[in-house]
Design a protein around this nucleic acid. Structure first.
Length: 307
DNA sequence: GATGCGTGGCG
DNA sequence: TCGCCAAGCAT
């Protein structure tokens, strides 16, 4: 859950998740739909699919691998997570390199080349630091200490070098460029895409939903029926799932990692829904695995057409 | 190696 | 308001 996601955002999901899936056996036995539903709103949904597949792999092989390579072979576990589990769960002297550690090491070593080009050098520097006897003796504490140094002192902007235990060894601090590191390649501008979604409920208060394909953007999540997303806006009403007294409810703007999406929301009520998809009680949408962008759409639609 | 993949908070 | 960023991984 913590992959690219803040602790504050994760905690409530983590607590509910552990109640629902208390151990690896329970997670492996659950349906992938149940896992997606518990993950809905947290983002990066491939993590949820991978975690479920990972649990099943662990159960199938009779337990967790305890070495880096074995962990690394599990779905959703890459170099960082493998090292973190090995060090924190099993006391293996490995140094997990996350964004915090990259920042700390790039500053201590004074690496001015931009990420991600210089990632390997930063990882090597972290490994080198882990060779310290104290780090070897307490791999978990060393990893946690590096995280905390990055999160609390060696922060992205305005690092508090005065409190830093590594100040005397820090090349960037000596050069007065700590706050400028690590340098990063310029990001491409975020393009805008346009589309429309349709909120359709029948006389019984049932709403029409669809399931997205299992992979790709919002893979496996539930969505409102809608159009494809294009580079330019157009009148999408002709593409509604069925003829109905459609009313424009408003626009939803949602920012994804690599593009911005602007969705026109249309709403209508009919006697009987005749369209592809499945129906759920519109008042009980809390149980649906709706990603945040779709929750926004529902909120806009129900403003003019309460469920 | 570069790109695709969510979401919310903060300066 | 907006760009940056967060305990990255898969392809």
């Amino acid at each position: 859950m913590l992959q690219q996601t803040t602790v504050v955002a994760v905690v409530p999901y983590y607590e509910k998740f552990l109640i629902r899936f208390p151990d690896v056996a329970a997670l492996a036995a659950a349906s992938v739909e149940a896992v997606m539903q518990a993950w809905a709103g947290l983002g990066y949904y491939a993590r949820a699919r991978n975690l479920h597949a990972c649990a099943q792999a662990v159960v199938a092989r009779g337990g967790f691998p305890r070495d880096i390579d074995g962990l690394r072979s599990l779905p959703g576990i890459g170099p960082y997570t493998a090292a973190a589990i090995a060090a924190i769960a099993f006391g293996v002297p490995a140094v997990p390199v996350d964004g915090n550690v990259e920042r700390v090491m790039s500053r201590v070593c004074g690496i001015t080349d931009p990420l991600p080009v210089f990632k390997p050098a930063i990882a090597a520097a972290a490994r080198q630091a882990g060779i310290d006897p104290a780090a070897q003796a307490r791999p978990s504490d060393f990893a946690q200490a590096l995280f905390d140094l990055g999160a609390g002192i060696c922060t992205p902007t305005k690092p508090n070098c005065l409190l830093c235990p590594w100040q005397g060894d820090c090349v960037a601090h000596r050069l007065g460029i700590a706050a400028e590191l690590p340098r990063k390649l310029a990001k491409a501008k975020r393009p805008v895409r346009y589309g429309a979604v349709f909120w359709l409920i029948d006389a019984n208060g049932q709403a029409l939903l669809r399931k997205r394909k299992p992979s790709g953007l919002l893979g496996g999540m539930t969505e409102l029926p809608g159009t494809e997303w294009r580079g330019d806006p157009w009148n999408a009403l002709a593409e509604a799932p069925m003829a109905a007294p459609w009313r424009a409810a408003g626009q939803v703007v949602h920012v994804f990692t690599h593009f911005e999406l602007r969705l026109e929301v249309y709403a209508a009520q009919v006697e009987v829904i005749v369209a592809d998809g499945f129906r759920v009680d519109a008042a009980g949408l809390a149980d649906a695995a709706l990603p945040s962008v779709m929750r926004k759409c529902v909120a806009v639609a129900t403003r003019i057409l309460p469920s």
